[in-house]
C-alpha cells in the first residue's frame, strides 16, 4: 500500500507535519467532577474524572499521596469488527501508562490516601486513541479542579513509506513501519509517556520526537482554549442579555 504520493501528500491529503483536526469540549458530563470530550480526526473519546476521593479497595491507599487511577476502555462499537467488551491485555497496559503519565503532573502529595479516578471511554477509534485520551484526560482533570503542574499533552509520530510523519491515522498505523505515541508536559518539555511499535533508527526517533514536541505546543493551546471557552461562553451569554 502506497501511503505517500508523488507530491509528498499522505492518503488523507495531509503534509508530513500536519495534524488531523482536533476539537475539545469541556464539562460535558454533569455528574462527574470533571469531564471532557475530544474529537481527533476519526477518534472520539469521552473522559470523566472523579475525586480526589477515598481510595477503594483500602489496601490501594497510599498514606503519603493520592493515586491516579486511569481506566482506558474501548466501546464494543468503536472499531470495524465488534470488540469484545471488557479490559484486555492492551487496555490494561494503556490504562497503566496513561495513569502514570498523568500522575507526573498532578500534585498527588496534597491528598494522601485518596484516589483520582480517570475514566477514558473510546467511542470511535482511528489510531492514536491513547494520546487523544491523555489530552482529554488532562483537560478533564483541570475541569475537576485538581492541582497540577501543567496540562499533559499527548501526540504521536511515526514512520510510513520510510519517512517520519506526524499523527498517523488508521491506514498509516496498519501499513506503516512504526508508530511512536508520546505525552509531554509542555512547560518543562518533560516526556511522561513514550512507547514505540515498529522499528526506527536513532535519527528517525529523534526526528519523530521533535515533530511531536512541536505539535504538542499547538495541542496545548487547543486545550487552554477549550477550558477558557467554558467560562467565556457564559460571559457572552450575559453580554447578550444586557444588550436586550
Amino acid at each position: 500500500m502506497k501511503l505517500i504520493n508523488e507530491e509528498g501528500l499522505r492518503i488523507d491529503g495531509r503534509k508530513f507535519n500536519e495534524l488531523r483536526p482536533i476539537r475539545i469540549e469541556v464539562g460535558v458530563l454533569n455528574r462527574a467532577d470533571g469531564s471532557a470530550y475530544i474529537e481527533w480526526g476519526g477518534n472520539k473519546v469521552l473522559v470523566a474524572v472523579y475525586g480526589p476521593r477515598e481510595a477503594f479497595p483500602k489496601h490501594t491507599q497510599n498514606p503519603s499521596r493520592a493515586i491516579v487511577n486511569a481506566r482506558y476502555n474501548m466501546a464494543a462499537f468503536s472499531v470495524d469488527e465488534r470488540k469484545r467488551p471488557g479490559p484486555d491485555r492492551r487496555a490494561v497496559e494503556i490504562s497503566k501508562v496513561i495513569g502514570e503519565a498523568l500522575e507526573c503532573a498532578v500534585f498527588t502529595e496534597q491528598f494522601p490516601r485518596t484516589s483520582i479516578d480517570v475514566y477514558i471511554e473510546v467511542l470511535q477509534a482511528d489510531a492514536g486513541t491513547r494520546i487523544a485520551g491523555i489530552t482529554a484526560a488532562s483537560v478533564a482533570l483541570v475541569d475537576a479542579g485538581i492541582p497540577m503542574k501543567d496540562m499533559v499533552v499527548g501526540c504521536a509520530a511515526g514512520k510510513i513509506d520510510g519517512k517520519v510523519v506526524l499523527d498517523l491515522n488508521k491506514e498509516e498505523d496498519n501499513f506503516g513501519q512504526a508508530d511512536l505515541p508520546m505525552a509531554i508536559i509542555p512547560r518543562t518539555q518533560e516526556i511522561v509517556l513514550l512507547q514505540m511499535d515498529g522499528n526506527m533508527t536513532r535519527d528517525e526517533l529523534e526526528q519523530a520526537v521533535e515533530l511531536s514536541k512541536k505539535a504538542a505546543m499547538y495541542i496545548s493551546d487547543l486545550q487552554k482554549e477549550a477550558l477558557l471557552a467554558k467560562y467565556k461562553s457564559q460571559e457572552q451569554e450575559k453580554e447578550g442579555e444586557r444588550g436586550e
Binding site: 467532577d33 470533571g34 475525586g51 483541570v142 479542579g145 492541582p147 497540577m148 503542574k149 477550558l227
Partner: peptide
C-alpha cells in the same frame, strides 16, 4: 511562580491567590 489550578487571579492583603473555579 505558576498557577496549579484553573481559577481567577486575585490579590488579598499583599498575597496573590488563585481562587479555583471548580473542585471539591
Amino acid at each position: 511562580f505558576y498557577s496549579y489550578q484553573m481559577g481567577v487571579l486575585q490579590t488579598y492583603n499583599s498575597y496573590a491567590n488563585v481562587i479555583p473555579l471548580s473542585g471539591k
